[in-house]
Amino acid sequence: MAKIFLILHVLAAVIAVGPVTVAGSMFPAAARKAAAGPDRPDSVAAVRLLHRICQVYAFVGLAVPVLGFATASSMGVLGSPWLIVSIALTGAAALVLALLVLPGQAAAIADLNGSATDDGDATTGAAGLEAAQIRRLAMLTGIFNLLWATVTILMIVRPGSSTGA
């Protein structure tokens, strides 16, 4: 049963977390283009699509820790330090995504849609989307991606593993 849980856990991680990391990483550049570009309606639609991908796959990503706990339990490694660190980092990544990245993307879309007004400042794009806002979102997405990369490394290396890997 452990092998089945492990397969499902890895598949869920690849299928759910992969699209969030890619779409999340693409979002700031797409938002920057939408704020400045002449083909603004198409660019804004692309930004909305990337945000929707992040939202949907973040929800699907809830399966990753559920299957991870099932896998760890069936393998008898729930108390392992590397797993506890991985759980903490996964929780941190989830919080960054849910509390900072997704709301930041939603705010950027609202600004692109004209919820804010353009004050003519050189650092402000169309409808009030600020360059600093895009940079902050890029940084937060990078932090999310770095947390997941660290968890992935811990899952592969597993200090004290008997596999020799």
Rank of each mutant, 00 (worst) to 15 (best):
R48L: 03
A106M: 00
D121A: 13
R135E: 08
A46E: 14
T124E: 15
P103W: 06
S80E: 14
W82Y: 15
T90D: 05
R48T: 04
I134F: 06
A108T: 03
V64Q: 15
T124N: 03
S86Y: 00
A116K: 14
R136H: 05
G18T: 09
Y57W: 15
L78I: 11
A132M: 02
T141Q: 11
F59M: 12
A93N: 02
G114I: 00
V77E: 10
G18H: 03
R52M: 12
I87V: 14
A70Q: 14
A108C: 10
I134A: 12
V85T: 13
D121Q: 09
G79Q: 11
L140S: 07
A70I: 03
A34Q: 06
A131Q: 11
V101W: 03
D121E: 09
I84T: 12
V44W: 09
D119Q: 10
L49M: 10
L67I: 06
M26N: 07
I134S: 09
N113V: 00
A72V: 13
G104H: 08
F144P: 01
R40C: 01
G18D: 04
L112A: 07
A108S: 15
R32S: 09
L49S: 10
T71V: 00
N113Y: 01
V85H: 03
L140M: 10
L102H: 05
A58K: 01
D111Q: 14
I109G: 03
A127C: 10
A34V: 00
G24Y: 07
V101S: 03
A149F: 13
L50V: 09
L140K: 08
T21I: 06
M75S: 06
L62G: 15
A138I: 02
E130Q: 12
S25Q: 05
M75W: 03
A23Y: 09
A58H: 09
P41S: 05
L99Y: 06
A63P: 11
T123M: 10
A93T: 01
L78M: 15
A93E: 00
W148A: 01
R135A: 05
A23D: 07
S43C: 03
T117Q: 00
V77K: 13
R135D: 07
P41A: 08
V56G: 04
V17C: 02
A35H: 04
V47K: 12
P19E: 08
G61S: 13
S115F: 05
L129H: 06
L49P: 00
A122K: 12
I143R: 01
L97I: 02
